[in-house]
Amino acid sequence: MKTIKLLTFGTLIFTFLSCKQNGKTQKKIEQNEILDSITINQINVPENVDLEFEVFLKYFNQDSVFQISRVRFPVKSKELDSDYYVIDKIVKKDDYKIIDLTIDPNSETKQYNKYRQQTILKDFEAKIEIRGIDNGIHQYYEFEKIEGKWNLTTWGYLST
């Protein structure tokens, strides 16, 4: 009788440990899949990147590490709530999503989601406006040259 109890107890412990180890293995696999899906693009950025806004923007779009270094966190942005009221939102570095403001040459001729993108440059400020053509797309991104370096300072997602 003692042998059966001991055997049952040993089987339960073995089963418990196997399940627990399997969970750790599965968790490790999931973490590796997440890390593999994150792409970090880092390229060599020239020292004179801030001389012209267009040059800065090229590297801002291509290099995710450079992009994050040129965002003034925390950022106050604007977006629409579910009732279409403009609300302010504070975005921390951990909540920031990499953006690409490269102009799509087909943006005005697409079948759906057509838009125009323009850059308005004034001295030490730049604003990129993205406006939909016959749709509710409305976004903007504002940059400011601070201490000789271009930085993203705010944006708005006001699409309806």
Results as ranks from 00 to 15, higher is better:
Lys2Val: 09
Thr3Pro: 01
Thr3Phe: 12
Lys5Glu: 14
Lys5Phe: 14
Thr8Tyr: 11
Phe9Tyr: 10
Gly10His: 13
Ile13Met: 12
Phe14Thr: 11
Phe14Tyr: 12
Phe16Ala: 05
Leu17Tyr: 15
Leu17His: 15
Gln21Lys: 13
Gln21Ala: 10
Gly23Arg: 12
Gly23Pro: 05
Thr25Val: 14
Gln26His: 07
Lys28Pro: 00
Glu30Asn: 13
Asn32Lys: 15
Asn32Gln: 15
Ile34Thr: 02
Asp36Tyr: 08
Ile38Pro: 15
Thr39Arg: 14
Thr39Ala: 15
Thr39Met: 14
Ile40Leu: 12
Gln42Asn: 15
Asn44Gly: 00
Pro46Ala: 08
Val49Ala: 00
Val49Gln: 02
Leu51Ala: 02
Glu52Pro: 07
Glu54Val: 05
Val55Lys: 09
Lys58Met: 03
Lys58Trp: 06
Tyr59His: 04
Gln62Thr: 14
Gln62Gly: 15
Asp63Ala: 15
Asp63Arg: 08
Asp63Ile: 13
Ser64Leu: 04
Ser64His: 10
Ile68Phe: 11
Val71Asn: 01
Arg72Val: 05
Arg72Glu: 08
Phe73Leu: 00
Phe73Arg: 01
Lys76Trp: 06
Lys78Ser: 04
Lys78Ala: 06
Leu80Pro: 00
Leu80Trp: 04
Asp83Pro: 00
Val86Ser: 08
Ile87Phe: 00
Ile87Cys: 06
Lys92His: 13
Lys92Trp: 08
Lys93Ala: 10
Asp95Phe: 12
Asp100Lys: 01
Asp100Gly: 10
Thr102Cys: 08
Ile103Val: 12
Asn106Gln: 12
Glu108Ser: 05
Tyr112Phe: 07
Asn113Gln: 03
Lys114Val: 01
Gln117Phe: 02
Gln118Phe: 07
Thr119Met: 13
Phe124Trp: 08
Glu125Val: 04
Glu125Thr: 06
Glu125Leu: 04
Ala126Thr: 07
Lys127Ile: 02
Ile128Glu: 06
Ile130Tyr: 11
Ile130Ser: 05
Gly132Ile: 09
Ile133Thr: 07
Ile133Asp: 02
Ile133Asn: 03
Asn135Gln: 11
Gly136Lys: 05
Ile137Glu: 00
Gln139Glu: 10
Tyr141Ser: 06
Tyr141Leu: 08
Glu144Met: 13
Ile146Thr: 10
Gly148Pro: 15
Lys149Met: 10
Lys149Gln: 10
Asn151Thr: 09
Thr154Met: 02
Tyr157Lys: 15
Ser159Tyr: 04
